[in-house]
Amino acid sequence: MSIVVTAASGQLGRLTVEALLNRGVPASGIVATSRDITRIKDFADRGVVVRRADFAEPDSLPAAFEGADRLLLISTTTVNERVANHRRAIDAAVAAGASLVAYTSMLRADTSTASLAPTHSATEEYLRERLPSVMLRNGWYLENYTSQLPQVLQGGALAGAAGQGRISAATRADYADAAAVVLTTDGHDGKVYELGGDEAFTLAELATAISAATGRRIDCTHLTADAFAQLLTGAGVPAELAHVLADADRAMSQDEMFTDSGDLRRLIGRPTATPAEAIAAALR
């Protein structure tokens, strides 16, 4: 029986496969799937089983999930197709006889007002009705901010619509480690983990942390959600994605991306990476 990781060519999927290997799971006991297996050839070279899986092509899934014991379902990025794609993957996991599916949902998926939440909530409900499962409700990624550092430093400002909302962001590596723990240990069936970093921050506090790390003054520009969406589209972000991101910031302004559950720290058995540490790593 195997541990299957979907979307293994993506950033979170790759880190999860690495975390499983670091926890001592034999490469032959891991199945990494992707729509394009050429992007995960490096895993095959290390002995990981590599299979093609495209949630939009149900016929590709039985072979991809064959022998699956535990499966990590990483949420897909195409929002308007997400629920249908997830249902196909869940149905295939049922047919494969999986004993547990872990799903990467979003923080406070059942109560969040963010436009992203309904697709996650619908997936959670469908999964609970069909398989033993665990919900990994991931908060925001610190990399969503550190990837912007060149633009922030060039413009001297961090812009957003999160206002004074507190954000419990963590690194992808921390979320991946949590997924690996759930996939390799027992006692997680039926659990809902609200996952976020130990050190919450506002956008203004993050701007201050960037200033401290770089020695340059970085201001925080507070915008409305509409104005932030316009800023993003002006920077080349597709309009649909820009509105999703701006709406996520609006939800953040209401503390919907804040958690003090401590679930992430407990799962990984150590403190989560701090914003300062993530900034320093990105600047190296």
Score class of each variant (00 low, 15 high):
residue 14 R to G: 14
residue 16 T to S: 06
residue 16 T to D: 06
residue 22 N to Q: 15
residue 27 A to F: 01
residue 35 R to A: 10
residue 38 T to C: 03
residue 42 D to Y: 06
residue 42 D to R: 01
residue 44 A to R: 08
residue 45 D to C: 00
residue 48 V to I: 01
residue 58 P to Q: 04
residue 63 A to Q: 11
residue 63 A to T: 02
residue 64 A to E: 02
residue 66 E to G: 01
residue 66 E to V: 00
residue 69 D to G: 12
residue 70 R to V: 01
residue 75 S to G: 14
residue 80 N to Y: 04
residue 84 A to R: 07
residue 86 H to A: 14
residue 89 A to S: 10
residue 89 A to F: 02
residue 91 D to W: 00
residue 94 V to G: 02
residue 96 A to R: 09
residue 97 G to V: 02
residue 99 S to C: 05
residue 99 S to F: 00
residue 103 Y to M: 14
residue 104 T to R: 08
residue 104 T to N: 12
residue 106 M to W: 14
residue 110 D to P: 04
residue 116 L to N: 09
residue 117 A to N: 13
residue 119 T to D: 14
residue 120 H to A: 10
residue 121 S to V: 13
residue 129 E to R: 04
residue 130 R to S: 04
residue 137 R to L: 10
residue 137 R to T: 05
residue 145 Y to G: 01
residue 146 T to W: 04
residue 146 T to C: 04
residue 147 S to G: 08
residue 150 P to I: 03
residue 150 P to L: 10
residue 151 Q to F: 05
residue 162 A to R: 00
residue 163 G to L: 07
residue 164 Q to L: 09
residue 176 A to I: 11
residue 178 A to T: 09
residue 184 T to F: 05
residue 184 T to Q: 08
residue 184 T to D: 02
residue 184 T to C: 08
residue 186 D to T: 15
residue 190 G to K: 11
residue 193 Y to N: 01
residue 194 E to F: 13
residue 195 L to D: 15
residue 198 D to I: 11
residue 211 S to E: 11
residue 211 S to A: 07
residue 212 A to K: 14
residue 213 A to C: 00
residue 220 C to S: 03
residue 220 C to H: 11
residue 224 T to A: 05
residue 226 D to H: 04
residue 228 F to D: 13
residue 230 Q to N: 14
residue 230 Q to C: 10
residue 233 T to I: 12
residue 240 E to A: 15
residue 240 E to F: 12
residue 241 L to D: 12
residue 246 A to Y: 08
residue 246 A to V: 11
residue 253 S to F: 04
residue 254 Q to F: 13
residue 254 Q to A: 15
residue 256 E to L: 06
residue 257 M to Y: 12
residue 257 M to S: 14
residue 257 M to H: 07
residue 258 F to I: 07
residue 260 D to V: 08
residue 265 R to Y: 09
residue 269 G to H: 03
residue 271 P to F: 02
residue 271 P to H: 05
residue 278 A to D: 03
residue 280 A to F: 02
residue 281 A to G: 02
